[in-house]
Simulated scan of single mutants.
Amino acid sequence: MAALTTDDSVVLASATGPTLGDTDFRFLRDFVLQHCGISLGEHKRQLVQGRLLRRLRALGLSGFGAYCELLRKDPDGELGELASCISTNVTSFFREMHHYDLLVDDLLPRWLEEKRGGKLRIWSAGCSTGEEPYALAMVLAEALERLGSSVDAKILATDLSPQALEAARKGVYALDRLSGVSDARRKRWFLRGQGAYEGLACVHPRLRELVTIQPLNLLHEWPMRGPFDAIFCRNVVIYFDKPTKQRLFSRYADMIGSRGYLFLGHSESMYGLSDDFDLVGRTVYRKRQ
């Protein structure tokens, strides 16, 4: 009887599927850092193994070695699916409400007055399943109606995850996902499902008019030119290492117009990472002139 090899290039079958060995984990860790800017420590190995097992089954692959070979041959083709597996898409409507209060009470009225006949552009970078851009669209549509503005206003929503983008494009949510939406906004901006769609709600067509949803890897080239009046990148850079954050903030500064705004998540900070912005509120940064 031959001894069981400890060579980490060999995939060992466990009770639930193949095991992620050292060699394959090192490759995945380097690949994810290079292409997604996400640093995976050793403590993430079991999480990565568990989440990727579903992907291996979907592709009909026997083990992680075969999956790594797929990434080597076609990194771009599988990158979005990999990012979906290792990322946690936690989002909600009107998350961090103080950001929306700033838009409603100050920024949108001022922008719509200053830009009459012009353009207003907001970017939701890392839009996940769409709650953020549609919440932005609600306050934007309300401001346009209230002020009777003629501004050409649009929201760009981007994400790397194909599954998240598909959900965002559908714009259909379980009613319990609308807990952050006021009753008035539920009635105004959602169409409630009936029959087979009982328990679901679809965003109003007016919101779809304001939002453009596109795939984008923040670490790769950006096809849009800007400038943007505001960029929302909330609970995204928390996954990145310091050099990646610095590069990203520098690129954001190039895409934001004079005195434009960058919104980060509640646990994120630009401290020591950029000299292009001033902190003007809770995780709200304004570009320096």
Rank of each mutant, 00 (worst) to 15 (best):
P162Q: 00
Q163T: 13
Q163F: 10
Q163E: 14
Q163C: 12
Q163I: 05
A164H: 08
A164I: 03
L165A: 08
L165P: 03
L165F: 15
L165T: 11
L165H: 10
L165S: 05
L165C: 09
E166W: 02
E166Y: 09
E166P: 03
E166I: 00
A167F: 00
A167H: 09
A167T: 04
A167R: 15
A168G: 05
A168F: 02
A168V: 08
R169S: 07
R169Y: 12
R169E: 05
R169W: 09
K170Q: 15
K170Y: 08
K170M: 09
G171Y: 13
G171F: 13
G171P: 09
V172W: 00
V172T: 11
V172Q: 03
V172I: 15
Y173F: 14
Y173I: 09
Y173P: 04
Y173V: 06
A174W: 02
A174C: 05
L175T: 13
L175Y: 03
D176C: 05
D176K: 08
D176G: 02
D176W: 04
R177E: 11
R177D: 02
L178F: 01
L178P: 06
L178I: 06
S179Q: 14
S179M: 01
S179Y: 15
S179P: 03
S179T: 14
G180L: 08
G180K: 04
G180R: 05
V181M: 11
V181D: 07
V181G: 00
V181N: 06
D183E: 14
D183F: 05
D183I: 10
D183T: 08
A184Y: 01
A184W: 10
A184H: 14
R185N: 14
R185P: 01
R185H: 09
R185Y: 11
R186G: 02
K187H: 04
K187A: 13
K187I: 00
R188C: 02
R188N: 06
R188A: 11
R188E: 14
R188L: 06
W189I: 06
W189S: 06
W189V: 05
W189D: 03
F190W: 04
F190E: 08
F190G: 05
L191S: 06
L191N: 04
L191D: 08
R192Q: 11
R192V: 07
R192I: 10
R192S: 00
G193E: 02
G193I: 04
G193S: 12
G193K: 13
G193P: 03
G193T: 02
Q194C: 04
Q194V: 06
Q194H: 12
Q194W: 09
G195W: 13
G195H: 15
A196V: 03
A196L: 13
A196M: 12
Y197F: 15
Y197N: 07
E198R: 12
E198I: 07
E198Y: 12
E198L: 13
G199C: 00
G199A: 09
G199Q: 08
G199F: 13
G199M: 13
L200M: 15
L200I: 03
L200K: 08
L200H: 09
A201R: 06
A201V: 03
A201P: 06
C202Q: 11
C202D: 01
V203K: 00
V203Q: 05
V203A: 04
H204R: 08
H204I: 05
P205E: 01
P205Q: 01
P205C: 01
